Simulated scan of single mutants.
Amino acid sequence: MNARPDIVCIGSVLWDIIGRSASAMRVGSDVPGRISRLPGGVALNIAMALARFGLRPALLSAVGRDAEGDDLVSACAALNLDTGYIYRSDDLPTDRYMAIEGANGLIAAIADAHSLESAGDKILRPLGDGRLGTADDPFAGTVALDGNLTQALLEQIATDPALARADLRVAPASPGKAERLLPFLTHPRAVLYVNLEEAGLLVQDRFDSAAQAAEALVTRGAARALVTDGGETAAEAVAGAPTLERKPPEVLVTRVTGAGDTFMAAHIAAELAGADRAGALARALTAAADYVSGDTPL
């Protein structure tokens, strides 16, 4: 692709290996189901959703020059994603994520994003070498950033002159990596997308509702925060404005991996299309509900 991307997605691009069963599961369960290998990773999930909403996303990540990496880049290109900025490593294998899902939700997951972490700031080169911007002429578009990056790299991104004009949309990769987003908690141009547990980890507290969590993030310095709580009411808080709350549509849950990424992508797409705060939140919740119900294609 030669056209300048509408949005840059920075973070994990990997293979999702997902086992799904229609049965409720617990530790030690051995049940029939289906196992699939699909393009995934937080940044890639967001990019795929953005492409479904008609945008042109570019990926900044690390992918190995192994057979799995070649397959992954080809799959991304077939989904109309710009893969030309991906750092391809001869020495690092392509990352993978493995999850088990039952009728009662996510049972367990392991994220192997060690190659992305090892690549470090090599993945950011297009933002400084003129392909997407430079320190003197920073990228001024929207950036979707995921927490699979190292703490050091996230801290670098938060103060990088090449991103001094960017609209930063930030999400953790998982609750276990939520605290990596602390450099963006007081960032003046960062929008945080977290779930209730992740919000609590960021501010070292516990909350009974998404609204409480979103307002606490803003009180701690966040310019803007969106907090989801599964099928319960979600909220958006902005410094100096009323907090918005909205309950997502009720649907039969058939999958959960990628739901938060779909929510974030739909919200970004809605705002880039001109939606107001309430409209963007509603569209994001509907898109996430469609996704978990299976109505949105993978």
Rank of each mutant, 00 (worst) to 15 (best):
R37Y: 14
L38M: 15
L38D: 04
L38I: 15
L38C: 11
G40V: 14
G41I: 06
V42N: 06
A43L: 04
A43W: 05
L44S: 08
L44W: 03
N45T: 13
N45L: 15
N45A: 11
N45P: 13
N45V: 10
I46Q: 13
M48A: 15
A49E: 01
A51Q: 15
A51N: 00
F53E: 15
G54W: 08
R56F: 12
R56M: 11
P57E: 05
A58C: 13
L59F: 01
L60S: 04
L60C: 06
L60F: 12
S61T: 09
V63D: 05
V63K: 03
G64A: 13
G64R: 11
R65M: 13
R65I: 00
D66C: 09
E68I: 00
E68K: 11
E68T: 10
D70I: 05
D70T: 10
D70M: 08
D71I: 01
V73L: 15
C76M: 08
A77Y: 00
A77L: 03
A78V: 02
N80I: 00
N80W: 00
N80V: 00
D82G: 13
T83C: 14
T83R: 02
T83G: 07
G84C: 09
G84Y: 06
I86W: 06
I86N: 01
I86P: 12
Y87L: 13
R88I: 12
R88K: 15
D91Y: 14
D91L: 10
L92E: 04
L92H: 08
L92Q: 12
P93D: 07
T94P: 07
D95H: 02
R96E: 08
M98N: 10
A99W: 07
A99P: 03
I100L: 05
E101K: 13
A103H: 11
I107S: 08
I107D: 04
A108D: 12
A108P: 04
A111T: 15
A111D: 11
A111P: 07
D112C: 01
A113I: 08
E117S: 12
E117Y: 00
E117K: 15
S118K: 13
D121I: 14
K122V: 00
R125M: 02
R125P: 00
P126L: 05
L127Y: 05
L132V: 01
L132F: 06
G133T: 03
T134Y: 02
T134C: 05
T134E: 02
T134R: 06
T134A: 09
A135T: 10
A135H: 07
D136P: 04
D136M: 04
D137G: 09
T142D: 01
V143Q: 03
V143M: 02
V143D: 10
D146G: 11
D146R: 07
D146L: 11
N148L: 04
L149F: 11
T150G: 08
Q151D: 14
